[in-house]
């Protein structure tokens, strides 16, 4: 039976879903059942290619940042173990935001190389109780590039951490998610992610979010919550608190 879907992702950061329900499984080691689709206003479009292989891409972001992620489940007995692999072409988006005037995130005279992100993650998920499912994450991001490169870092929360590997060549992320059913159709998620990008003038970041999700119907859900980012930036350490909200569908 198709159930409601979830998840919000602030710009770049994938968010975990909850529990045993495979449709609500974006950030977990679980994959969508074969032939199932799930999407959010800000979340990627996901498709169950087989019962243990899932494809994901953001439907709007895809046209300015071509990318594809594949999640493969390897173990699903008691504990779920999966790996996730993705590749993204970054240059087009960077060239788009390197411009004069409004929307110029980077200076117009930036030199953007041919730049890719290759991401590899390991995920382990175990449900201990309907109100407690844990997911552990380890991720390596690589940034192969070709051509001359001269563009400044984007010292924004979330973006800085997620793009640090552009400048260092690689970054590492570890995460733990805790989620479950609070009451009836009300779900919760709390997570913590640690970023490490050795070689950068700043080398770490911490992200944590907490949200409530209400499953309005089996195929529709809304969520709202808060995301905290604590990080080291070229100007020093800073903490940010951002709202998160999303509308989620499955079909």
């Amino acid at each position: 039976m198709i159930r409601g879907v979830l998840l919000f992702c602030m710009i770049t950061c994938p968010v975990t879903a909850w529990g045993q329900d495979r449709i609500l499984s974006q950030g977990t080691a679980l994959t969508l059942p074969k032939g199932t689709w799930a999407v959010g206003l800000f979340s990627p479009l996901r498709y169950g290619l087989t019962d243990d292989t899932e494809l994901a891409a953001h439907p709007l972001l895809f046209f300015v940042r071509p990318h594809l992620n594949v999640k493969k489940n390897w173990v699903s007995k008691g504990i779920y173990l999966s790996t996730r692999h993705g590749v993204a072409y970054e240059s087009f988006l960077l060239e788009t935001i390197a411009r004069e005037g409004t929307g110029g995130i980077l200076p117009a005279n930036s030199q953007i190389p041919q730049l890719f992100t290759v991401s590899n993650s390991a995920l382990a998920t175990k449900q201990f109780h309907p109100w407690l499912t844990l997911t552990l994450l380890a991720e390596l991001n690589l940034a192969p590039s070709f051509g001359s490169s001269d563009f400044p870092s984007m010292d924004l929360p979330l973006v800085y951490q997620a793009t640090a590997h552009f400048y260092t060549g690689y970054s590492l992320r570890w995460g733990i998610d805790m989620e479950g059913i609070l009451w009836n159709s009300l779900h919760y998620l709390v997570d913590l992610d640690l970023w490490w990008f050795p070689g950068h003038s700043t080398s770490w970041g911490v992200e944590s979010k907490a949200y409530l999700l209400w499953r309005f119907s089996p195929s529709f859900a809304i969520l709202g919550g808060i995301k905290m980012i604590l990080g080291s930036y070229p100007f020093g350490n800073q903490q940010h608190l951002l709202p998160i909200v999303d509308l989620l569908w499955s079909f």
């Binding site: 999700l213 209400w214 808060i226 909200v245």
Partner: peptide, 13 residues
Amino acid sequence: SFLSVITLSVLAF
């Protein structure tokens, strides 16, 4: 449930 989510969203905003 609906009010909880809305309240949290407004607070977050």
